[in-house]
Nucleic acid binder design. Structure first.
Length: 488
DNA sequence: GTAGGGTTAG
């Protein structure tokens, strides 16, 4: 057998060790082979890095620093893995690596999975940073990705960042569709910035986009929320002119708003219009009307309405039941409340909703508990529990507002990158592997690289932040000294 | 390699 024929065998062995979870054994094998006779390819290194990333991010990260010191940035695939990994650990460091590679004129694109992982993990600001830093993703981010980013930014209260993303996009040759604009319009509306939202709506024609049904629903909702009900009805007319039939959603928004401001008659009038136009009422319609009757104190009307819709197979949703029962208990009509509660606790959607809360809170059976309270006739207690659940399901609908508490995040990210630039240079200075190889102890129970005995710093994170702060305060020599000492 | 993934209610 020639030496060359061992190579795939070694790769295979390392790959399988990683696959079975023996990452450290794989690492040990890799190191002995690599150092002694260079028998393995970069594929081995890749599978080890992947294994490390899967198994223990922290340990993986610590090893990453050592790895890059020992082996440098090997080839494109390894580089990609390293950067991807760095990105998922800390976007700032990932961005640093990317900038470093751009300097070296290396073509480099990050897999889009990095972006998606950040988004799914709720690391929206980090995803945002990667975007405005012009990271190349492959395949490139498309309009759907940007829509999701902007939506999450708005919903997270990062309004400035959402708007920055919009202006960033205007410079790009990405064709934006109506869903994208709907998302921006909704974000603006949710912040109470209706004028800007309507400006955008009015500009749609210029862009050559027709508003969709959702566009109208979003804007009508916003007008209703801000109690511009006259304008909401006018926009409904405009919606019809555009060829849309207002859905129950639109009518419901109006009913909800009219009942909220105590305009009971107007709410009823809208519900009549809904029926006249042949629009199908739904659980929102009943619930909104029950709210209106409740506000009015007309519990006879509420019960009658409930019975009517019930006979048509339309039940209120959770909040609708709460409105009804609140109104009844307020009048001391506990027996009727109990009757309604019994019916409510038998409906599948309601039970499922309570069960969902259950699984979040703990293993106790909330549903069983409420049934028990109901049968004991302890209606007030039952209603208290239901109210509590209601506030869990329907928290305040308005998004949080940018309040400047995100100072660190709103800084231009170039600052952060340059701050860690020098620190990272030390930690990644490639090629000087000889003196570091000995620090890797991959024997039994090995969980992370040992730091030199001369150092008092046992922890990579501590070391790293120390080096960063020294570099940023200009004490580069001292940082250098500490690093040398540590890795001796 | 691909498709599919995105927006609207109290």
């Amino acid at each position: 057998m020639t030496v060359a024929s061992y190579v795939p065998l070694c790769d295979w062995a390392i790959y399988n060790l990683c696959k079975k979870g023996h990452v450290y054994s794989a690492l040990e094998a890799y190191l002995s082979m690599e150092i002694n006779c260079s028998l393995v390819t970069n594929e081995s290194l890749c599978s080890i890095l992947k294994g490390l990333a899967n198994e223990n991010a922290k340990v993986g990260w610590r090893l990453l620093g050592v790895f890059t010191k020992i082996f440098g940035l090997v080839d494109n695939e390894v580089k990609k893995l390293l950067v991807e990994y760095a990105f998922l650990q800390d976007v700032k460091i990932g961005l640093y690596f990317v900038s470093k590679m751009d300097l070296e004129n290396l073509e480099f694109a990050l897999p889009i999975s990095v972006f998606k992982i950040l988004m799914e993990a709720g690391r929206i600001l980090e995803a945002y940073k990667s975007v405005i830093s012009e990271v190349n993703f492959t395949p490139a981010l498309d309009v759907v990705d940007f829509t999701m980013l902007i939506d999450r930014l708005f919903k997270g209260g990062f309004v400035n960042q959402a708007l920055s993303t919009c202006s960033f996009l205007q410079k790009k040759a990405i064709s934006l569709n109506i869903v994208f604009y709907n998302t921006v319009i909704n974000g603006l509306c949710r912040q109470g910035r209706l004028i800007e939202a309507f400006r955008l709506y009015n500009s749609l024609e210029l862009i050559g986009l027709a508003p969709s049904e959702v566009t109208f629903c979003t804007l009508i909702d916003a007008l209703c929320r801000e109690q511009f009900l006259y304008d909401a009805e006018a926009l409904m007319g405009e919606m019809i002119l555009h060829g849309y039939t207002p859905s129950s959603r639109v009518y419901n928004s109006l009913i909800i708003s009219y009942s909220k401001i105590g305009k009971f008659d107007a709410a009823l009038k809208v519900s009549k219009e809904l029926e006249v136009h042949g629009v199908k009422a739904d659980k929102f319609t009943v619930s909104a009307l029950l709210n209106a009757y409740g506000q009015e104190g007309d519990m006879e009307g509420a019960l009658q309405l409930y019975a009517e819709f019930k006979s048509r197979g339309i039940f209120p949703d959770y909040l609708g039941f709460l409105y009804l029962m609140r109104g009844l208990t307020a009048k001391g009509r506990l027996e009727e409340t109990q009757n309604i509660l019994r019916q409510m606790l038998q409906l599948r959607p309601i039970v499922e909703l309570i069960d969902k809360i259950d699984s979040e809170v703990g293993p106790e059976s909330l549903h069983g508990f409420i049934v028990q309270l109901c049968e004991q006739g302890n209606i007030k207690a039952a209603c208290t529990v239901l109210d509590e659940i209601g506030s869990m399901i329907h928290p305040s609908p308005r998004f949080c507002v940018d309040n400047g508490s995100l100072q660190e995040e709103s800084k231009p990210c170039g600052v952060d990158i340059s701050r860690i630039h020098e620190a990272a240079t030390f930690l990644t200075s490639a090629g000087k592997l000889e003196s570091y190889a000995g620090d890797l102890d991959v024997g039994d129970g090995m969980q992370e690289p040992k730091f030199g005995k001369g150092s008092q710093i046992q922890d990579f994170d501590t070391l790293y932040s120390l080096v960063v702060s020294l570099c940023s305060s200009g004490e580069v020599k001292r940082a250098n000294q500490i690093l040398r000492q540590t890795f001796r």
